[in-house]
């Protein structure tokens, strides 16, 4: 059984990509000091690319693209964030009784997203149960490649997740697209043509427009019921705000981080 702890819920607003990544990294460092596990749910105030920690922006993104991009501190591939709900979880292995194996930890953490889809009337299945080929094959665009514990609905992948592991702390964030502008994806990310055949979004699957605030609420309640955890809603602490500002200015807004993976 997981050790019952207080979990904090941060229902954040829509920010740009630099600030979103700065807050996420501030939460990881904050956990090291406070040991307070956190679920943060947030959005994006304009189209924004995030690339994986080890991706090379010059190879991944089309030079003519005008969409801003940010390098994540998590692994994985590029995502065009726009109309979507994004979550981040910062906790220790013990907080969610997580297995140490990376794949198994995804399986457990992502189970609340499965429940979220179920509440929306969508039957999501892990890719590993549906595909034997092309699992784990690297693609520039995250939504075009399947990992074992990515979700598939009606034959297409939906969303994507990535982790950072620091000592015993697991940080995971993931994207749940409400809508995907494939033309924008094709104009922005190299070798992404054909992604529409592989990936889908909530509005597409449900054939209606979804409401961001309702999805935020449903995602947090799905987390509570899935893990039997009561979340208490809160904001960033003063220290976390200061730390976010530091990461924002010294790291995520810096060209040498986003292009070269170098920090000031």
């Amino acid at each position: 059984m997981a050790v019952q702890k207080n979990w904090r819920l941060i229902l954040d607003k829509k920010n740009d990509g630099y600030l979103n990544m700065a807050i996420d990294e501030a939460l990881l460092y904050s956990y090291l000091a406070t040991k307070l596990p956190t679920l943060r749910i947030y959005g994006w105030n304009r189209p924004f690319i995030s690339i994986g920690y080890n991706q090379d922006a010059r190879k991944i993104l089309k030079p003519e693209s005008k969409i801003p991009f940010v390098r994540r501190f998590t692994g994985g591939a590029a995502i065009l964030h726009d109309k979507e709900v994004t979550y981040s979880i910062t906790c220790s292995l013990e907080d969610l009784d997580l297995p140490r194996e990376v794949k198994k930890s995804y399986e457990k953490i992502c189970s609340f997203i499965k429940e979220f889809y179920k509440h929306l009337g969508l039957e999501a299945e892990f890719a590993k149960y549906l595909f034997s080929e092309n699992i784990g094959r690297y693609e520039n665009f995250c939504f075009s490649s399947y990992e074992h514990f990515d979700f598939v609905i009606n034959g297409k992948k939906i969303g994507g997740n990535a982790q950072r592991r620091k000592h015993n702390v697991i940080f995971q964030h993931g994207s749940i697209p409400q809508e995907i502008n494939f033309n924008m994806v094709y104009k922005t990310i190299n070798n992404s043509i054909g992604a529409a055949a592989k990936t889908s979004s909530l509005n597409d699957l449900l054939s209606h427009k979804t409401d961001f605030d309702k999805l935020l609420s449903l995602l947090s309640s799905s987390f509570e019921s899935c893990f039997n955890i009561k979340l208490f809603q809160s904001n960033l602490s003063r220290e976390e705000e200061a730390s976010s500002r530091m990461f924002l200015e010294k790291k995520y807004r810096q060209t040498h981080w986003n292009f070269e993976k170098k920090q000031v």
Binding site: N54, F73, G75, V102, G136, Q163, R164, K166
Partner: peptide, 13 residues
């Protein structure tokens, strides 16, 4: 350093 597997960037100590 870091090591990436399954979309997870893990730190090496």
């Amino acid at each position: 350093g870091t090591i990436e597997s399954t979309k997870a960037a893990s730190e090496l100590y």
